[in-house]
Nucleic acid binder design. Structure first.
Lengths: 207, 207
DNA sequence: TAACATAGAATGAGCGTTCGATCTATAATA
DNA sequence: TATTATAGATCGAACGCTCATTCTATGTTA
């Protein structure tokens, strides 16, 4: 998902692409440690092993780096939900994949960046747009998956009912990002099991 | 919960207290709009209707303001869970109060600040400590509440099982903060109903 | 030689914070 | 009561520093 072309000099030589990614990796780490506004271009450039000025050959400004980081982070979520939908025995796939997803959400390194992105989305319109477009896609995929599962179990649900279940499922899932920050000592595997049960129950809610 | 005395001149005249609160209100709004590091003392002072230098008569530095905002925000959560525990018919109280809590969590104004706090907690040790102490208290209260409900329904659970249920309940709840940012168009009352059902199911999970 | 890669200095704005000078209101004194 | 002393409230300028960004000069490569 290419949101915008943020490189002023639109060279797509492999060298330039690698250099861009190098900057993004360094930026992701700095953003995790200090936040979008706490991290400086000087820090990022140092961490990327190049001069501060040189960053501007690959990104128009700092916000373009933020936007690129956000877009890159959301892509993993998009592929996860897309894969989910493609699975054949969807219910088993959903429950099983949940464990994987839960583990990701409970990784503090990952959580720090994802929560930082959400905080930025709450105030930065450009980031909000990227996040909301990706979220809408995920919701569509998840809705289709849930509809298939429920249909297979004999339920005939309204689109709004399905949409509400998607919200509860997403809330359960995304809440883990905050849990691992607020209580880093939680037992990840046991919580994952409980989440699986909760998802199972959710799929059997009355329409 | 008084974490530290952040006022350099420890006057507790009502005037000073009111002035401190005036600063905190202005700061909360600025932090919501620009983040902890995006908001400047100049902005806060302007919004509070006083000079920038004068802020330092009430707070040692910017981080002390952040800490005070965080502590103040968490107090509402602490009172909520404490009230929950005090209710007589705890199950009905929990489910009913959930609707109220869900409404709070789905308020974008509130969510923006709470997510900002979580993001800051992921990198700022001082904020992390405040957040984690408050979270531990909430978890204890919630665990006691759930234990009472489950005991009333004939279950005899291990402390770890109760603790895990608390985590799932908290995740479900806190996830709403992220949902209202990622999908501001969600139907709040319908989602609240679904959440109530999910909580109900959670309380009947096998031990 | 032409085009790109890179460094590093320069710039101006804004940052958090400090500080001395006033203003204000109450308390002490005559 | 009138006057003075005192302590806190408040302002606004000033400081040193860091920020994001730009510019210029120099390598590097094809």
């Amino acid at each position: 998902m290419q949101i915008t072309d943020s490189s002023p000099h639109a060279t797509d030589a492999p060298r330039a692409t690698a250099r861009r990614q190098q900057i993004l990796n360094a930026a992701a780490q700095c953003f995790r440690e200090h936040g979008f506004h706490g991290a400086s271009i000087a820090q990022i450039s140092k961490s990327a092993g190049m001069s501060a000025g040189h960053i501007y050959h690959y990104f128009e400004n700092k916000e373009a780096i933020i936007a690129a980081i956000v877009a890159q982070d959301l892509e993993s979520l998009l592929t996860l939900t897309a894969e989910l939908r493609a699975a054949c025995n969807v219910r088993a796939a959903l429950i099983e994949r949940a464990a994987e997803g839960v583990a990701d959400q409970l990784d503090p390194i990952n959580a720090a960046l994802k929560v930082e992105i959400a905080a930025e989305a709450a105030r930065n319109p450009r980031v909000a747009q990227i996040v909301r477009e990706a979220d809408a896609t995920c919701r569509r995929e998840l809705a289709a998956t849930i509809r298939a599962i429920r249909h297979g179990a004999g339920h005939e649900d309204s689109p709004t009912a399905i949409g509400d279940m998607v919200e509860v499922l997403a809330s359960l899932f995304e809440g883990l990002l905050l849990r691992t920050i607020r209580n880093p000592g939680l037992d990840r595997s046991r919580v994952a099991q409980r989440i699986q049960i909760a998802i199972n129950d959710l799929l059997d809610q009355p329409g």
